[in-house]
Design a protein around this nucleic acid. Structure first.
Lengths: 305, 305
DNA sequence: CTATTTTCATCATTTTACATGATCTCTCGA
DNA sequence: TCGAGAGATCATGTAAAATGATGAAAATAG
């Protein structure tokens, strides 16, 4: 009891196209007997004849079973070729797919820059972006192979993956442009205790901010919480309270607000790029990481020292 | 240098789904060593690793190459299952396709009746109808395997195919319904010499008619020739000349014409169903032939004796 | 830190499948 | 009736695959 093999399907196609077992054997580089046996194996695997052998010098003809089989066989053989081509492309670094994890503040400015440069080099690469609010699911998906590369925030302790520091993203105060803020060059941290703050709803970044505030003696009190950067900034513009946001997430072209460093400053969040171990790394992912590091050097503050 | 085999793709899928070589081997009914070697063969065929083996009791993980490969492998394996299912269906006579050759006069009444009954039995059968004006291309396509069954007219001498007589289709005169034809029960053949006739343009049927007419002493003289049955009948309705048509092609519900036998009669055309040799015959084609014979007995004149 | 467990790789061996070359058999056409 | 051409069959050597046992690496438990 044998099963269907690629070789049999190739023999089927060759015989169907050549019309004789002998010619098919020549084309495939086998002996006639080999092709005969391969077709017999295929027939025993399927349980039905695929060729009608009229005998004598007449060409063999496909049975209805053979025709049905050939229709599928051609798809299968084409798909195999496609597979090889796909894999070759993947290792040439030109094609394939790249799934990239990210989070809001990175998505605004850094990601488009990086993606733009990557696509400039390899236009046939298909980049898929997955956004999450926290590190944890991004890391999990990277390990699962669901992502090829992902941005991460803050310090990451995870031996299963490799991280590349891209730079630091300071937290800034976004406040309404009014008489009070007009002449400030930094926002006094203690004032936040009185005004309250606008912040993100939850997530890793938010608890990082809260710890930072406490370290400068301020207990955060939220006047408004949202996960949408635009909404946060718009709310700050009304003067309800200042928003405390990562600089990357701020639209600095907005004339209605002032973007100020906090005084005293709280520890900035570091931006990392996570990659799987070398064996699981795409060529495209490696290149993405290089470009991300370049862009980080250009656009992000680098840690002192 | 080995090439990609179905077995390897099955191993790839099993390992990817189970997470370990050992579990995949159990599922596939192989030893662990066998699966290990199959994956190695696949990797050497592709030129790249498909799994990352972290070593120790951790699950293996697909490499990007492996993921690309698996995407295609799943399509290929699904297609193989589909192929088997398709062939099984074909031999259960329930599914598959049936390509049927036909010609105009049969298409009008006989074919819809037969197709209706066949589809009543096997609704999932896909029937494709191919119409030709002559026997010759129909027979050629039947032999080429392009058709599974075909209607044929008149006597056929072709050892490569099998024919089943369905009945006879007499030639009738279709004449305008006027004072002259009102009381006739048969049309006198000699009159056709005076009026001329309306007939088909060319083809096997037409030369058969001409031979028949000559045998009753009439030399055919065409007033109008067309390949469209409706046009022929419409022309006869105007009274230009009587049309000589196979009864099957006549719309007998037309009150504007009288449909009369010829006197003396000319030999009728026999209607046959052509089938390929038994090895090339679909179960559906066999059933089609049985139903066609039934319908023929009900609707066609049977040859004397 | 060692023992244990889990997992995959490796090796030698057996078993199976495969390809070959030499006939056989069949059909058609001369 | 015979030969040419096509596939089937057979015996045989070879290559590939599966096996079972063993080994190595890494995480886990004590």
């Amino acid at each position: 009891m044998t099963s269907v093999e690629i070789r049999y399907l190739e023999a089927l196609r060759a015989v169907a196209e050549e019309g004789t077992f002998t010619d098919a054997a020549i084309r495939l580089g086998y002996s006639q007997a080999a092709v005969s046996q391969q077709i017999q194996s295929l027939e025993s695997a399927l349980g039905h004849a695929v060729f009608d052998r009229p005998g004598g010098p007449r060409a063999v003809a496909l049975t209805p079973t053979g025709r049905a089989c050939l229709r599928h066989a051609e798809v299968i053989l084409d798909r195999l070729d496609e597979m090889r081509a796909d894999i070759d492309l993947l290792h040439a670094g030109l094609g394939g797919r790249l799934a990239c994890g990210t989070f809001q503040s990175v998505s605004v400015e850094l990601l488009p820059l990086i993606v733009g440069r990557v696509l400039g080099e390899t236009p046939d690469l298909q980049i898929r972006v997955v956004e999450e609010d926290e590190n944890e699911p991004l890391i999990a998906r990277l390990i699962a192979g669901d992502l090829d590369v992902t941005f991460l925030a803050g310090p990451v302790r995870e031996p299963m993956i490799e991280t590349i520091p891209l730079g630091e993203d300071p937290f800034v105060v976004v406040a309404a442009h009014d008489e009070f803020t007009r002449d400030l060059s930094a926002f006094p941290a203690p004032m936040l205790a009185g005004t309250g703050i606008i912040g993100e709803s939850a997530g890793t970044a938010q608890s990082f901010i809260e710890d930072g505030l406490r370290s400068v003696g301020v207990t955060p009190r939220y006047r408004f919480q949202t996960n949408d950067n635009g909404a946060m900034q718009a709310m700050a513009r009304t003067g309800l309270a200042p928003a405390l946001m990562p600089l990357l997430a701020v639209n600095t072209d907005d004339p209605g607000v002032r973007v100020l460093p906090l005084d005293p400053p709280i520890p900035p969040r570091s931006i990392l790029l996570g990659l799987p171990g070398p064996a699981l790394r795409t060529l495209a992912a490696t290149r993405f990481a290089q470009i991300a590091a370049d862009v980080g050097r250009e656009r992000l503050a680098q840690p002192a020292g």
